[in-house]
């Protein structure tokens, strides 16, 4: 052990280990936060996350602006066969309950081109509001894994039910009616 105190710079000797310890602690906190974020599931209940949606007709819609109405939020893509299968049912729900306060909102995700989405809307005669989810922001907010997924939101802006896969008119209409019957 001959005198070579200077083998390692003094700063490193003094601060090296505390710096490493601090780095590990910071890394742990960041990783923990990331893990918590990744493990966050779909919002199956509680307040529905708010978002702006640019509709295909150019208007911008905000979910919070629809407070007081029941919202059926539907994530879809033109290339997904179950989305095609459920579109007529969604349109029928829109036609039957719009006057009672139901808003069906279509969020188009992972579409290769907006033209394809428009063609899909025209072909199936869809009348409810539809817009593209750029950069998958809304899909990430709702933790959508693959289209179709739908979220039923009550008049107070609370998520009440999550549907994974195609919506069927007869399976969902009772639930919608009961939500419509609730006071705001």
């Amino acid at each position: 052990m001959t005198g070579n105190e200077r083998a390692i710079p003094r700063i490193a000797a003094r601060w090296g280990c505390p710096a490493l310890l601090l780095a590990v602690i910071v890394a742990t906190l960041i990783l923990g936060a990331q893990l918590a974020e990744r493990n966050r599931g779909r919002p199956a209940s509680g307040p529905a996350p708010d978002f702006p949606l640019q509709l295909f007709n150019g208007e911008t819609l905000r979910l919070s602006g629809l407070r007081g109405q029941v919202v059926l939020l539907n994530f879809w893509a033109s290339w997904c066969p179950p989305c095609r299968a459920e579109a007529p049912d969604l349109q029928a729900l829109h036609e039957d309950f719009a006057s009672n306060g139901l808003r069906v909102i279509g969020v188009n995700m992972l579409e290769s081109s907006p033209a394809k989405a428009q063609a899909f809307i025209d072909e199936l005669g869809i009348g409810y509001a539809n817009g593209e989810d750029t950069e998958q922001r809304i899909a990430r907010l709702y933790r959508v894994e693959a289209p179709p997924e739908s979220f039923l939101i009550d008049r107070r802006g609370q998520v009440r039910q999550v549907y994974i896969g195609s919506i069927r008119y007869d399976r969902i209409s009772d639930k919608i009616q009961s939500l419509l019957a609730e006071a705001t």
Binding site: C17, L21, V24, I25, A27, T28, G32, L35
Partner: peptide, 13 residues
Amino acid sequence: LAFWAAMTLLALA
């Protein structure tokens, strides 16, 4: 994560 952090911190300490 906790185990990783604990072991690494213990060792560094």
